[in-house]
Amino acid sequence: MAGVLILIGFAVAGVLTGFSVIIPYAYSKYVAVAILACLDSVFGALAANLEKKFKINVFLSGFFGNAIIAIFLTYIGQKLDVDIYLAAVIVFGGRMLNNFSTIRRVLINKFEKRKEQKIVETETSNNKI
């Protein structure tokens, strides 16, 4: 509970500071790719958390590393006049969808297990009667 509150506090603070930050239009492409990379990391963390495989150092290195690499790729793409940022968009977009499907499957599995347990419980109670 306390952890969720901390997360929400940081997110709100980020939004508030974000409104007073001005991104020059020429750089908005880089920021967009960085946002994609970060979102991918966050959903990856959610999925890993549900599977109980979450590691803080993996998350942090992925969060900042992916963003920096994505920005770097976009920069190189602009210099070479090849839209390499599309690669980042496709990869991160695909991984986000994968993470969603993982989250979905884990949640459905949990739900079904609970249902089975309930059925077993009711059966045992019926047997007692």
Partner: peptide, 12 residues
């Protein structure tokens, strides 16, 4: 990490 993400999102 969420702070940076929210900051970039809002600014963008």
């Amino acid at each position: 990490a969420m702070f940076f993400l929210a900051l970039m999102l809002a600014a963008q």
